[in-house]
Design a protein around this nucleic acid. Structure first.
Lengths: 185, 185
DNA sequence: TATGAAATATACAAATCTGTATATTTCATG
DNA sequence: CATGAAATATACAGATTTGTATATTTCATA
């Protein structure tokens, strides 16, 4: 509803990705967003709360974008084409990484709320892959989904570490082999 | 030479892994190590310097451990057995993750010294895998090495996020397929 | 026992962090 | 124009951060 609320979310998301979460103070966020701490704490009553909302919005936006790309495709081809979309995402100039991967590294304690949300989002992504694997007729959909998630998250990690790594190119080739083996074998 | 220096390195490494780097102050480190800031700053003249030394020692120790495990094996079997050792490492109770993966997430800026060292260590690990792939007679050793590194780093990431994920089990199966394809095909 | 380096305790500086209190200004709506 | 909620500026509290200054104590060695 509020424009300032959205602005804060957007700015925080950007700063968290480019500078890290713990290295970004709320003073910086409100300065870039062009507002004050009073407003920030009105909408998000703690920094941890803001972090959680940023993560949730990021995950929702990503899933919505991916779902839009994936619509109206044959089940057997969906898994392959998924990697085309992931490649488009990773190689885009404004790619900044997978938010929940970084967040879980900054909050390693498994009891921490941010870590728990990150783990939940990772689980949901694997579940999404498992759905695609099931539709495609894989023998062991959970196994294939986990293997593909390793390739995707590994490629994202590699690209976070070094832009232009080209990792996704080789992840795609590996995925093709694994998908074929899981469907035929 | 100095026992305190080693103690500080060890304690810092442990705290960085369990609580995160930016969330661990030097006051905490010296308190746990049973010394004072004066001593810490005598050996490591800044926190960033300490972080870099912790990363370097961690990487050296890991490579030394792995090299010890890998000695006297047939080149064609080394790649497979590598995953057995990685599994042993990941499933050990005191496994705390891959230090350079977390560090690069906490310092996302590619110009940052900690990020650069992390990227360098990741590159060295891929190079090590490429050496094994070459010895094994892979057609495109660089490609296979990159794919295997995606599986390993992905599995480590998964285990960092949730202990007992079992990801390495499926990474091994995927690796077996990819290795066979790279050697035969 | 005397010397001198290593380590220590204590205190502090200066900056930054999250979060709040207070009072003023903007601005759409009645 | 008047009312009232939203947003603002300003200032501050209290804790924590990295890093240093100073002075004392430990302790092996000459």
């Amino acid at each position: 509803m509020s424009i300032l609320r959205e602005k804060i979310l957007h700015v925080a998301s950007d700063l968290f990705q480019t500078r890290g979460i713990n290295s970004t103070g709320v003073d910086t966020i409100v300065a870039v967003a062009g507002t004050t701490k009073m407003t920030l704490y009105k909408y998000f009553h703690s920094k941890e709360n803001l972090i959680l909302e940023v993560l949730q919005k990021g995950h929702q936006d990503f899933q919505a974008w991916l779902n839009g790309k994936m619509s109206s495709k044959k089940p057997t081809e969906k898994l392959q084409q998924l990697f085309d979309h992931i490649e488009e995402w990773i190689t885009a100039p404004d790619f900044r990484g997978m938010a929940f991967l970084k967040a879980s590294a900054e909050f390693p304690n498994e009891e921490n709320a941010v870590h728990r949300l990150s783990a939940e989002q990772s689980r949901q992504f694997k579940q999404y892959l498992a759905g695609l694997a099931t539709d495609a007729g894989a023998k062991d959909p959970e196994a294939l989904a986990l293997q593909l998630s390793l390739l995707i998250e590994g490629a994202v990690q590699a690209e976070q570490m070094k832009r232009g790594s080209g990792a996704i190119k080789y992840a795609k080739k590996a995925a093709k082999i694994l998908i074929e083996m899981a469907l035929k074998g």
